[in-house]
Design a binder for these strands. Structure first.
Length: 188
DNA sequence: AGGAAGATCTACT
DNA sequence: GTAGATCTTCCTA
């Protein structure tokens, strides 16, 4: 820890998360996801995200008929984690949306900077690497200490690209996936 | 008990 | 690059 950790700036607060979901998704790129496990601290730079909206978004966990706990979380306070299982993989999201809206940002890939040994170039892989499970569902990234996101003193600037979301059966006609151009940890 | 899921791996054209 | 099988735990009934 050491050098990288000293570059952490402050934790992202409610004002950061309480904006349009796509804007938050885009601005989460280059931020640092921190996971505390007792004495250990795992950290990685977020390099790929996707925005998911409300019941009108067919790919969203808040879409009609989806599990109630997901809908409630995505409607509720921003800055909370939303964790759910898909095809045997835990996926990690952060609730983020403008006031009185619904939405969450899926963290799809990170670039390891501290304590991570396994590959993190996919949403299921990064949760495995960071030991993220259902236990973290619903906790706050603003107040809690087990997991949170910080801004980071990035030396190198980067270029943001967007595309349609991956693996989604029915997508919206707007590009809601954001990633850092050329980063090798971005999923394919 | 059954169905569904925003994934991953492997094996090809 | 795309295609298919397998996937593992959840929610809802």
């Amino acid at each position: 820890m050491q050098k990288a950790v000293k570059n952490f700036l402050k934790r992202l607060n409610k004002d950061f998360y309480e904006r349009d979901t796509a804007i938050v998704a885009k601005e989460l790129l280059g931020k640092v996801l921190v996971r505390r496990l007792g004495e250990k601290t795992l950290a990685g730079i977020i390099v790929e995200t996707e925005a998911y909206y409300d019941e009108n978004d067919p790919a969203s966990r808040a879409y009609l008929g989806r599990p109630k706990y997901c809908v409630e979380l995505m409607k509720g306070d921003v800055g909370k984690s939303l964790v759910y299982m898909v095809h045997g993989n835990w996926l990690f999201n952060v609730v983020a949306h403008a006031k009185n809206k619904t939405g969450a940002v899926l963290i799809r890939a990170i670039e390891p900077i501290n304590g991570i040994k396994t590959k993190t170039n996919g949403p299921g892989k990064l949760t495995k690497a960071m030991k993220i499970t259902k236990e973290l569902n619903g906790i706050s990234l603003i107040d809690g200490n087990d997991i949170f996101i910080c801004s980071f003193n990035n030396k190198n600037s980067f270029e943001i690209c967007s595309s349609y979301r991956i693996g989604v059966k029915r997508d919206l006609p707007i590009k809601l996936r954001f990633f850092i151009k050329g980063n090798k940890f971005v999923s394919k």
